[in-house]
């Protein structure tokens, strides 16, 4: 069993950056361009690692946070993969949710430690968006656990799909889209507005780490939502993990298309719209639970 988890972890660490390459190819296709080779993002990241290690002025904390963020992200993926095939505690779901929140917090602290107006504006935009998004995340995971009784992947046996559970999972997918900071929610790094915002002072290996962490993050949130969805149908851990990874890959491609047919939102517009959407979905779901639809 543990081999399956090991293989999954390796796949989950390699494939996000590859998927970003595929996303670029899809974007190019929608743009009617040829686009770069599929492995381009990997080439980019590896090339960045080969560059001079340059730390921006007064940004020692940035480096620390960046590596911490990468470590938590890897830990998170590792923990999730293992917990699915071989449950570690009876509250794995809670542990994963908490780790996810910590990783997000670490991630968003990175630009805040850099003294650059664009970086700060980018970070403050991301925080506004995250307040809405993370709040919804916790509420949704809580609701899910409450509806299905799943607190760890050892207890997936009894759960069955209901409309109100599916609604929470749908909202979790919205969450994963927003958390992946794709258009229209890439307001924190809006290239033409605030010159890449939170990325502005990062270069070389630091930028490489940042990008890789971002890819892992994108992968994880999709994987997590997929796991919760498929847990309602698939009852063996190994099969659940494998099929979730496949679903995540498919989703990635779908997200790539969506990101390319929309424009960038504005921080005030985005957070309000998002808040409304979450509240409506959660209300519907709770209503559904009490009416037992």
């Amino acid at each position: 069993m543990i081999e399956i988890a090991g293989v999954s972890i390796l796949v989950a660490l390699f494939i996000p950056t590859l998927l970003d390459g595929v996303e670029r190819k899809i974007r190019a296709r929608i743009h009617s361009r040829i686009g770069p080779p599929i492995l381009q993002t990997w080439y980019d990241v590896l090339k960045l690692f080969g560059k001079d290690f340059f730390v921006p002025a007064n940004a020692v904390h940035t480096v620390m946070l960046l590596f911490m963020s990468l470590a938590i992200q890897i830990l998170l993926i590792g923990y999730t993969c293992i917990a699915v095939v071989a449950p570690i505690t009876p509250y794995d779901l809670v542990v994963i949710a908490v780790l996810a929140i910590i990783s997000q917090a670490a991630f968003i602290s990175i630009p805040l430690t850099i003294a650059n107006p664009f970086s700060i504006i980018g970070a403050s935009r991301e925080i506004v968006l995250m307040l809405v998004n993370e709040g919804a995340f916790l509420a949704l995971v809580g609701l899910y656990a409450y509806y299905t009784g799943i607190t760890a992947f050892s207890s997936i046996g009894g759960a069955s799909p209901t409309l109100y559970t599916l609604l929470t999972i749908f909202a979790l997918y919205i969450f994963s889209y927003v958390a992946s900071s794709r258009i229209p929610f890439d307001i924190a790094e809006a290239e033409p507005e605030i010159a890449s915002g939170l990325l502005i002072e990062l270069s070389g290996p630091l930028l490489g780490v940042f990008l890789y962490t971002l890819h892992l993050k994108r992968f994880f949130f999709k994987l997590f939502a997929s796991l919760l969805l498929l847990a309602l149908f698939i009852k063996t851990g190994a099969l659940l993990l494998a099929s979730s990874i496949v679903l995540t890959i498919v989703l990635w491609l779908v997200y790539a298309v969506i990101a390319n047919i929309l424009g960038r939102s504005r921080v005030d517009l985005a957070s309000i719209t998002l808040l409304k959407a979450y509240l409506v979905i959660i209300a519907l779901s709770v209503l559904g639970y009490f009416l037992e639809v």
Binding site: I183, N260, R264
Partner: peptide
């Protein structure tokens, strides 16, 4: 303008 609004697809097609 499309590029500034993050709508690169419109940007590329306009230039196409």
């Amino acid at each position: 303008a499309a590029h500034l609004l993050g709508y690169d697809t419109g940007f590329m097609h306009s230039w196409r």
